[in-house]
Design a protein around this nucleic acid. Structure first.
Lengths: 231, 231
DNA sequence: ATTTGGGGTTGATCCAGATCAAAACACCGG
DNA sequence: CCGGTGTTTTGATCTGGATCAACCCCAAAT
């Protein structure tokens, strides 16, 4: 792995506090690869050989059951995925594929576990990271169980809108994936966008404009305990 | 807190490996209380003052949004809940209430965080625990997104059946809660039980009998990546 | 320029599951 | 034993969202 990639990874909370020697030990065993879009990086059920770090591009986590498929989450730079499987030395619960051309660092799980045993700061960072992940999934589950698909879309748009800080923004991926991510069909998503027009949402291709957020907020009723990523 | 309760808590993976002095420090600050059924122990949105340990009885975790309520999980002895909020020093994402008369240990979150900083074995145990919790929620989410309510019920019954190791078992709580837990209405749950009769499921009050598991398995298609608690 | 294929939209229909209403039942406390 | 309260069940109806099918659009390939 080229040393030029070290700083990006070192910059992650997860790797920021650990001892230098441990970090370089991890990096020595790791390697970086460029993947084209639509490549399946890992498959659910397989043993977790590597901790993955998305350096650029984007990765989708998804799952299968009985012939059905569902998008679970999207991972954007710079962050890791399947940390829990790596730590527990257990099988992946989700598959992952690149959404775009992506640069990804692969750190052998064995090494991660070894350093986890040796480096207390790293162990602590993992706690923080896992707690964050856990709470994110709980929020996603509340979103799913307490809201209709229209409400989920409205809140999703508000979350994106907040990050974008402007009146317009682009959807970060195809609508069909967004649909699966939100737990609905593409057809239904299309209709849902139309249903949000009266609340000032206009859609042109992948570009979204929210004229009057207060109007949409009144409908969506966003809740920090579901929609705030930070808390 | 009476010393007679120490062993139960010490027996948990979470507290098993930590130094004696740290354990007793935690216990000194903790206290144990008996609660009647239907008491709201914590409310979502509040700061996490205590790590809770269910010593006996049962606790339901649930959430609200926009006037709706949903059961998220049930906690049975001996285990902890809201560990993530305690560690992150963040607000609870879920509320908790006793389902039955319950004996619960309350450990000040501040103490937990202090010991977390001081005791590396404790920090490691927390990692394992959080990874476990994270993976459980992911499984629950797959269950929700990939299965119909009937399939969720069928798989739930098979999971309970497995634990019970007999042809019959009792539902661990009221049907209305089970319904909410499975993401359906009580009426629908009642009908769902009937729909499973052809697969050898009979219900008498809270008692469930599964005549021929293979029959039900063929319908439910349980998957270790969703239904195995251990993995 | 034409074909080809994949996303996206639209309309028609269908179905799972919610809602509403009422009856049956269980579990109390007096 | 009786009324009272809450849960479960049943039936009727409604609706959110899925499915099916056709069509549009655009981009890449020939």
């Amino acid at each position: 792995m080229p040393e030029s990639d070290y700083p990006d990874i070192r910059g992650l909370h997860l790797f920021h506090e650990m001892a230098d020697e441990h970090f370089t030990a991890l990096m020595r065993g790791a390697y970086v690869q460029n993947f084209p879009p639509q490549i399946e990086l890992i498959t659910e059920g397989e043993p977790s050989d590597f901790l993955h770090v998305v350096l650029s591009g984007a990765v989708e986590l998804f799952s299968h059951w009985n012939g059905r498929e569902s998008s679970m989450a999207a991972v954007r730079p710079i962050s890791t995925f399947i940390l829990a499987a790596t730590i527990k030395d257990a099988a992946y619960l989700m598959s992952a594929r690149t959404l775009e051309k992506s640069r990804i660092a692969l750190i052998p799980s064995q090494d991660v576990r070894a350093v986890f045993d040796a480096d207390n700061d790293f162990a602590r960072a993992i706690v923080t990271e896992l707690a964050q992940c856990y709470r994110s999934v709980i929020k996603a589950q509340k979103d799913l169980k307490l809201r209709t698909s229209l409400e989920r879309l409205a809140n999703y748009l508000l979350r994106q809108h907040k990050n974008a800080s402007g009146t317009e923004f682009d959807l970060p991926f195809e609508k069909r994936r967004l649909a699966s991510f939100l737990g609905m069909t593409p057809e239904n998503l299309s209709r849902a966008f139309k249903s949000l027009q009266p609340y000032g949402v206009s859609v042109t291709g992948t570009r979204i404009r929210i004229d009057d957020p207060t109007n949409l907020v009144a409908f969506a009723k966003p809740d920090p305990l579901i929609d705030d990523f930070a808390t």
